[in-house]
Amino acid sequence: MTQNTEQNMAPVIEKKRLLSIDALRGFDMFWILGGEKLFAALFMISGWSFFQVAAEQMEHSSWHGFTAYDLIFPLFIFLSGVSLGIGAKPLTSYPADKAQSIVRHGYKRLFLLIFFGVLYNHGWGTGIPMALDEIRYASVLGRIGISWFVAAMLVWYVSVRNQWLVAIVILITYWLLLQFVTLDGLGGGNFSAEGALNVWFDQHLLPGITYRQLPMDPEGLLSNLPSIVNALAGVFTGRFIIKHRTNGGFLISRLCLIAIGLLLLGYAWDLIFPINKSLWTSSFVLVTVGYSMLLLTLFYFLIDVLGSHLWAKCLAVIGMNSIIIYLASSLVNWQYSSQSLFGGLISVLPAGWQQLTLYGGMLLLQWLFLYWLYCRKIFIKV
């Protein structure tokens, strides 16, 4: 590749914010907000096997294994790490009062995400006044908060070399724990939903209730440990982007090679430590980081290198208010709103088109709400 071509591939970007990150976060949230239901409707309309396969990929794996829908959660954690890697510095780089303010904000973010996670789960049991033992404290937002916070503390207080060391030690230690440690007959290489070591931790140390009263919560205590590596991987990726952002060809090729290497390593580890979202196994971490990097590389190339911005801004409208719309997806009945507005049209359409219109309308209403916030520069962040 010639030097001129390399220079043409160098994107003009702001140091602290990349449109590709907001767009990819919006793309990630799109499926949570109801986008996953569109494939089933399209299959009903067309009968094409492609949409059937896509609809199947929009379901979580039953236990071991991996589907596209399993990537949504770890991708969000990865992207939180990317933003951290782009913007954060060791606290020694700041004046003392600024460093204290940053740390206070980190704790605030952690506790707010844990609280919002309980709110999202409707986890207060039978209602107010709350029964503390009926609350589900574990949550998606709680895990995002924990993984981001630990990664932030490492960025603020620990050298880059030791951050890499921590990530490697976490993955290996977690595997050794689940493979060889036994507590009350649980663990010792048992990776089932009833017999994994995670069950012991959730039954003995996790306050409140588990998801659907299962023996192990999918966002339980022990599996928070490897999710930290998803955030750290995002940190390393963000730093790599900033370091090589003026050399687009090198950056994109290296990110792709690293991602493919992680995928190969993750699928190889799957042979002895199965890829499993609920257990958040080390092999699951490597595979999800690999796919996350490939997606980010694709979005970065299309948006920040080639300058394809229109569709990206449509997704960024979602990504820039991701927390508020995630909460709203639990607290607001968007399907009822869509049915109320478009019910007359829906009722006269064939079955497949009814589903497509219902869920398409639901997505449209959520996007319009976010666009209203976007136009007024209202960005609700934690």
Rank of each mutant, 00 (worst) to 15 (best):
Ile275Trp: 02
Lys243Tyr: 12
Phe299Leu: 07
Tyr374Trp: 15
Pro274Phe: 07
Leu262Ser: 05
Leu271His: 13
Trp334Asp: 00
Ser329Arg: 09
Leu263Ala: 12
Ile260Thr: 15
Ile318Met: 08
Leu373Met: 14
Asn333Pro: 10
Cys314Glu: 10
Val287Asp: 03
Trp367Asp: 06
Thr288Phe: 03
Leu298Gln: 09
Leu345Met: 12
Val287Asn: 06
Asp270Val: 05
Leu358Ser: 02
Ile252Gly: 02
Trp311Gln: 11
Gly361Leu: 02
Trp372Ser: 14
Tyr374Ser: 12
Val348Gly: 09
Ile258Trp: 15
Phe240Tyr: 15
Ser278Ile: 08
Gln354Pro: 07
Leu295Glu: 05
Leu363Gly: 05
Ser292Thr: 06
Trp372Lys: 13
Gly266Val: 03
Leu356His: 04
Ile324Cys: 08
Leu368Met: 15
Ala316Asn: 01
Ala351Ile: 09
Leu331Val: 14
Thr281Ile: 06
Tyr371Ile: 04
Ala312Asn: 01
His309Pro: 00
Thr357Phe: 07
Arg254Gln: 12
Ser322Trp: 00
Gly290Pro: 07
Leu255Tyr: 01
Leu265Met: 14
Val305Gln: 02
Trp311Asp: 11
Ser283Ala: 15
Ile346Asp: 03
Leu365Gln: 08
Phe299Met: 07
Lys277Ser: 08
Trp269Asp: 03
Ala312Lys: 00
Val348Gln: 11
Val287Arg: 03
Thr246Phe: 04
Thr281Ser: 13
Leu310Phe: 12
Ser330Asn: 15
Leu358Asp: 00
Gly343Ile: 08
His244Ile: 07
Arg245Glu: 10
Ile323Asp: 02
Gly261Phe: 10
Leu331Gly: 11
Trp269Phe: 13
Ser329Cys: 15
Tyr326Leu: 14
Leu364Cys: 14
Lys377Val: 12
Leu356Gln: 04
Leu295Met: 14
Ser347Arg: 09
Arg254Lys: 12
Asp270Cys: 08
Leu306Ile: 09
Gln335Ile: 09
Leu341Tyr: 12
Cys375Tyr: 11
Ile303Asp: 00
Trp269Ser: 05
Ala312Thr: 02
Tyr300Ile: 03
